[in-house]
């Protein structure tokens, strides 16, 4: 596993989302082929955007309340943050690498 993606627990959520700068959070599940498909793309892009965007992931099965609070009901779901607040639409289901890269570029660019 890449050192550029940090797995968090739901209790750490508040501290993990940085108050300044950009972050992306991946809600993943087991028995979820699109989650498995996303993992290597997420890690490759985490390496590419290292130092610019914090890459976080959280296991849905252990984060039921947080998923409910954030209105996440599908895996994978990617949530994007700037300066601690969610920005832009979420990505969910089968996510293309190019589509994710585009969103991340916008996140650091704008």
């Amino acid at each position: 596993m890449s050192g550029n993606v940090r797995e968090i627990q739901q209790s750490e959520y508040e501290q993990a989302i940085p108050a300044k700068g950009a972050a992306v959070l991946d809600f993943f599940s087991t028995e979820c082929p699109p989650c498995e498909a996303l993992a290597p793309k997420f890690e490759a892009l985490a390496e590419q955007f290292a130092g610019q965007i914090q890459f976080l992931k959280i296991f849905r099965q252990g984060s039921r309340e947080l998923a409910q609070r954030l209105g996440v009901s599908g895996s994978p779901t990617l949530i994007f943050y700037r300066d601690g607040a969610e920005v832009g639409p979420r990505l969910t289901g089968e996510i293309k690498r190019s589509e994710l890269k585009q969103r991340l570029s916008e996140l650091v660019g704008g």
Partner: peptide, 15 residues
């Protein structure tokens, strides 16, 4: 999509 609508039962059933 991902906020109540799904196309994959094995992925999202447990929600």
């Amino acid at each position: 999509r991902g906020r109540g609508i799904s196309y994959c039962a094995t992925c999202d059933g447990a929600y």
